[in-house]
C-alpha cells in the first residue's frame, strides 16, 4: 500500500534543509479500538534513510514516541543545485516507501 510522502528542500544559509512528511498512523500498540475494545497493534516507521546522489548521508530511527504522520527535518551540508536527494522508509510491518527530489 502506497502512503503519501511529501518532501521539501529549502536553502538555509550555506546548507540545505530537507523536510519530509509521511502519512503514517504511528500506532503505539497501547491504544484501544473504541468499537472492539481491543488493542490496536503497534505500527510505526522504524527507519528512514536519506541519500544524496545515492550515498547514504543520514539515517533516522523512530520508535512509537514519534507523532502520527511524522515530519522529519535534517540538513545537508554538502548539497548543491542539481543533486539528487532520495528518502526511503520502512516500518515494523514490512511496509516501505520512497521519494526522490532534486536540489534546486
Amino acid at each position: 500500500m502506497a502512503r503519501t510522502i511529501k518532501m521539501k528542500i529549502k536553502k538555509s544559509g550555506s546548507e540545505y534543509r530537507v523536510l519530509v512528511l509521511v502519512k503514517h498512523p504511528m500506532e503505539t500498540g497501547r491504544r484501544k479500538d473504541k468499537k472492539t475494545g481491543k488493542l490496536v497493534p503497534a505500527h510505526y516507521i522504524e527507519t528512514m534513510t536519506f541519500s544524496l546522489n545515492g550515498k547514504l548521508v543520514a539515517e533516522a530511527n523512530m520508535g512509537t514516541g514519534v507523532s502520527k504522520n511524522p515530519l522529519l527535518g535534517i540538513s545537508l551540508t554538502a548539497a548543491k543545485p542539481g543533486d539528487k536527494v532520495s528518502i526511503h522508509w520502512a516500518d515494523n510491518k514490512g511496509e516501505s516507501g520512497s521519494v526522490e527530489s532534486v536540489v534546486k
Binding site: L19, R30, L71
Partner: peptide, 25 residues
C-alpha cells in the same frame, strides 16, 4: 516520562549536519 522514553534518533554521516527536526508524542 513517556512509556518508552526514546522517541527517535538520527545517525549523521558525512554530508549531513547537526540539525534534526521531529514531532514527538
Amino acid at each position: 516520562k513517556n512509556p518508552f522514553p526514546l522517541t527517535s534518533r538520527l545517525k549523521v554521516f558525512p554530508g549531513s549536519g547537526g540539525y534534526f527536526a521531529v514531532r514527538v508524542k
